[in-house]
Design a binder for these strands. Structure first.
Lengths: 125, 125
DNA sequence: GGAATAGTTAAGCATGGACTTGAGTATTGC
DNA sequence: GCAATACTCAAGTCCATGCTTAACTATTCC
């Protein structure tokens, strides 16, 4: 299992729509803090906090020259999440085949289950 | 751009550690609600709420037979998020090459930038 | 039929996180 | 030097979400 809290911090960063929009913007090229803040109907300080979250989990990188801080995408930033998803998709797909499903079935107790009378299955009853 | 709120609901579901643990558990095979609730130090009702979130965004599926509800992974559930990540990794990687980076640079004003005196760049001043 | 089991729903509390305000610091232009 | 610019930090408000409790329904076992 790869670093758990890394996944956690990346997901927490991505779950906020504003931060995803900031990422979209930065994927079109670097921008300063004020350039990033401008399109959002929110204060400078709020955007700054979002940027700090994004940088803390390695999704963006920033450097300050003089009084201007320029932010850009950290290219490998999404890799841990991509790996996490890839790891979970493989086992999930494995359960498509019936055998795997039966083997994984809970309570395979051999004491014959009495024939149930009321057994119509209902999605979302 | 693919369905925005779908990504949103998947991320909101995944950001909660308990729900990720439930997914891990289910990726090893189907389980009933009480089987899922047992390992967590939390009430039945709380786990049920997590399951509802996971099912609402298509990450798991459940069916009730008699009084028992059995949950299992929805195989394609993570696909939208995987696609979203894939879409964002390509442009980000493109910015690795210097040309793309220069083209995307903000303010490429041709009026010669005067040589700055105080220009030591500092990460995280 | 009645008790036990398995799940469901609703209401309320508590915490975390997004956002604001306001004050402060460093840098640049004149 | 002084004002404007560009950001930084801290404190406080507000709301969404996770969790609990408690009451309720449906199903199964005896």
């Amino acid at each position: 299992m790869l670093n758990y809290s890394e996944i956690d911090s990346i997901l927490r960063a991505l779950v906020e729509p504003t931060r995803r929009q900031i990422l979209e913007r930065l994927s079109r090229g670097p921008a300063t803090v004020s350039q990033l803040a401008e399109p959002f109907g929110m204060t400078f300080a709020a955007v700054l906090q979002h940027l700090q979250v994004l940088e803390a989990c390695g999704l963006i990188r920033s450097e300050k020259i003089g009084r201007v801080r320029t932010c850009r995408i950290e290219p490998g930033g999404l890799a841990p999440l991509a790996d996490w998803i890839a790891e979970r998709r493989i086992p999930a797909e494995r359960h498509l085949d019936r055998l795997g499903q039966i083997l994984a079935e809970p309570d395979p107790s051999p004491k014959g289950q009495s024939p149930k009378k009321n057994q119509q299955k209902d999605e979302k009853q």
